[in-house]
Design a protein around this nucleic acid. Structure first.
Lengths: 192, 192, 192, 192
DNA sequence: CATGAATGAGCTTTCATTCAT
DNA sequence: CATGAATGAAAGCTCATTCAT
């Protein structure tokens, strides 16, 4: 069996778990279903992951990395911060709009006891890029003089809420709505 | 058995469930533990609630109502909107800071399949007060001309993120930090 | 509280149990449902019957007695045996056709472990009238010289099967069909 | 584990259920006891059967098939109908006399709500052989011109009653008694 | 490496029965 | 006598995990 195939199998398991959890929650995502959806035997999962907990945590780390890459794609460090931030903001919203499974999984994961199982360093590592991006802007006096952690929380929190609203389908959000949302965010955090 | 005692039992069950879920998640909150914590027999729970699902949904509705009351407490409709909004904003953060169990439960509930079990009318009824409060301000040209749903999402989303950050204990938030956060929010949503 | 009322209550409980069992089986006929259907409190049932088993057995005895009375109603001992037997045969089928609950209950009861809880004398007492009726006919050389127990079994067994067929609704049985059935039975047991 | 052994496990579960139900009724035949009697873990049962209901229905279908085979064994289509019928009649009584568990199970099953869970086609398929056997005899003017459904009901009903009487132990049935019973049945259904 | 039958602890829920009022 | 809240044993069933093949 080739490495490629192994990779496929591991990937298939992660993807199957993602789909089940995003749809039915941790509750109703048994390993047997994961196995079925991934087209492997139940026991096979345990070759790649020590336990269900570990599989779920690995899924989180994996998808966070992928997500980060997408969000920072096409970032042009030479542009003014505002442009880069706008890009980041809208990219995030669009990414999750087209990848709702990842979004639902993240939301559930981060509000579950699983989140506490991650190593601190792991969490830090995954959050670092965004943290660095915004902190630099505070120091260079582009953003309000507010603790970066707070700014990050507020920006990310409001972006997430927008994504959730959009995905819920109860409000048709146009791109001009998104533009308004961006300015609402920006006018809050920019230095006056 | 007196009515008071009866009331206590139902209440005790709800409270026990709240504490377990906020601490261990839905996953690890079996009815047997709820019963133990509430000092009732397992079967007794089913006198008051038809199923675990129903108990959890009832808990959500119950706590949402209580929370709403607290958040709007001391609201003075005669004051300017900004003052009222500031009161609402800080009150919310303080309420959940002192009632973290409710917060953690809400976050888990709203990101779980349980949320979908609630009747639409129920959700509407619980969200109405906040919705009305902010929508009026949009119409009277105090707030940006942005769809109220979007404004609500952003305000509530960022407030929630702040609460989560505060409760996480990884960042000591002073009251002046909160004041900054408030202005960050306000400057974003106010009409310029 | 008058005796009449007490009687009503006992009767209501028996009737409620009959309806539940005939419809849902012993399985799905909990005491709480019996209480609800009989408009009494659950505890009240235990004033009239020591246990669920006893209630079910009492119901059997009660309904057997009632049934026997109906079946032998209008029996004219002065008539020839064949006429009396025909009357008895058709009367039985008609009785259960109009009282299916009783029939379904009997069938379930007699094929359940409950039947074994009845005292032998009780069973004998309830079966005696039919037994006597047929045995006499054997001795007076109207019926075949076959052990009465066997004749009874065959007559009753085939009558029951007819009733079940009729109640099942899968075969519309006319009164001429019944007449044919009677002759099929009679030609089998009569002495040649 | 070999195929033979797998087969044994499924079979063992069915057999365990048969023995428990025939002895104690549906009521007192918990899955845990079935597991114990079959020497498997409780969960294993659910590998082979989706639910208790399904297991019980599968048991019925399985045993009906087996029973049919035994009853029609040594049937010689070249013989006159009367001989074949006699063979069928006595074979049935003898089969259940030596397999009382099957008999008690059938009686309980067919008078329980479980029976209604079977698909109509399944029931038809299982009853077809007997139905065909007797209907043909009606058409070829060997039997009375009575709707076959009625004849079947009466024959089967009376045979069952005989078996029940025999198994009850309260009446020692000799083979000459059986012969008498056969003629009682035959003289009833034959064309005169 | 891969399989999937087997496990059994533990889950939610039911229900006959009791007993304080 | 009547009530019905409370009990808790026991039911049916799920599912993470193991291990012989």
């Amino acid at each position: 069996m080739t490495n490629a195939k192994d990779f496929d199998k591991r990937e298939a398991i992660l993807q199957a778990m993602l789909e089940l959890i995003s749809k039915h929650g941790f509750h109703s995502s048994p390993m047997s279903e994961v196995a079925k959806k991934a087209n492997v035997a139940a026991g096979t999962i345990y070759h790649y992951f020590k336990s269900k907990d570990e599989l779920i945590c690995a899924l989180y780390v994996h998808k966070r990395e992928t997500t980060l890459q997408h969000i920072f794609k096409n970032d042009d460090p030479s542009k003014p911060f505002k442009d880069r931030f706008r890009h980041f903001y809208l990219q995030t919203i669009n990414y999750f709009t087209t990848n709702p499974k990842e979004f639902y999984f993240f939301e559930q994961f981060m509000n579950s006891p699983y989140y506490g199982m991650l190593k601190k360093e792991e969490i830090t590592r995954l959050e670092q890029p965004i943290y660095d991006f915004l902190r630099k802007a505070v120091f260079t006096q582009v953003l309000r003089d507010v603790p970066p952690k707070i700014l990050i929380a507020m920006v990310v929190g409001s972006a997430n809420a927008l994504i959730k609203l959009r995905l819920s389908g109860e409000f048709m959000m146009t791109s001009s709505d998104l533009e308004l949302a961006f300015f609402t965010c920006w006018d809050g955090i920019k230095r006056v």
